[in-house]
């Protein structure tokens, strides 16, 4: 927004410094996570950021003795498939709820919104029985099906589609575009920032999902990263250096996805029709 050139005022310097301090605070726990992954088991409780004897042994162990690469592949697949599906369906529903007037619209919206209010912890048992009845236990489809649409995404997209001016859509209708094409070719590009945001959230939500993947998978070939990582937590002790190492490795790809999509958020704003 306010990109008006102004001389650097002391007020701006203060704002910038505060933001910077905040950013450092935000990053501190993560820096410690990375630092712990380079320490030996008996040293990770020390405060020193850089150990006196840094080691790569945790990383070597992770890749040599666990199925980490397989978990990684599974996580990528599950997260990507869910994200693509959520982006399409949630924006379709959000768009319909925002831009069409029809009887039962409010009810459908509240009903979908209300699905956010049941904790997953309570749904896993019915889901499990459902998956069993459809023969989906211990399969990729079984892993993915509870998340191919989300109430959250519908809500998010509805809120953003509401700010799309009706005139744009009506103009397209006059041009004779079909309703579906108006949605994909006119409406969707107008909410690119929201779509990128939804993509990030969905990807991450699936990337870190734990309880359902744990329940639905039985064979180690289908474990996702969080399920695999938690096997370092034992009965009486946890191999924290391994959990930190795994978490560090697991954070990197999401970081890249984020940095990649972050650009799209900006570009979406510049190219989009919302600048008025």
């Amino acid at each position: 927004m306010t990109k008006i050139k102004a001389p650097v005022s002391p007020f701006r310097i203060i704002v910038w410094s505060l933001l910077f301090i905040g950013a450092v605070i935000m990053m501190t726990p993560i820096i410690f996570m990375f630092s712990a992954s380079f320490k030996y088991n008996d040293e990770i409780y020390e405060l020193a950021l850089i150990s006196s004897e840094p080691t790569l042994s945790n990383y070597i162990y992770l890749f040599e003795n666990t199925e980490f690469l397989k978990w990684f592949k599974n996580s990528i697949f599950v997260a990507l498939a869910s994200t693509v599906s959520v982006l399409f369906f949630d924006s379709l529903v959000g768009y319909t709820l925002a831009k069409f007037r029809f009887r039962g619209r409010k009810l459908v919206f509240i009903a979908i919104l209300s699905t956010l209010m049941i904790p997953t912890e309570m749904l896993v048992i019915p889901w499990y029985i459902l998956a069993r009845d459809f023969g989906l236990l211990d399969s990729y489809i079984g892993l993915i099906f509870p998340g191919i649409m989300t109430g959250f995404g519908v809500f998010l997209m509805k809120q953003f589609f509401e700010s799309v001016p009706d005139d744009y859509l009506d103009a397209a209708r006059i041009d004779g575009l079909s309703e579906f094409r108006i949605f994909t070719q006119i409406a969707m590009p107008l909410v690119t920032p929201a779509l990128s945001a939804l993509a990030i959230f969905t990807f991450l939500g699936n990337w870190t999902a734990f309880l359902w993947p744990l329940i639905v998978t039985s064979s180690a070939e289908l474990f996702t990263i969080p399920v695999g990582l938690s096997s370092f937590s034992g009965e009486f002790q946890s191999e924290w250096e391994m959990i930190m190492t795994g978490a560090a490795v697991a954070t990197l790809p999401t970081l890249l996805v984020f940095l990649f999509l972050q650009r799209y958020i900006i570009r979406g704003v510049i190219l989009g029709g919302l600048k008025g």
Partner: peptide, 18 residues
Amino acid sequence: RACYFIPFLTTAVAMAWV
């Protein structure tokens, strides 16, 4: 912006320990 967002990328299990 990245600094503020990155905590959202982490898993609760690992960060809770820190």
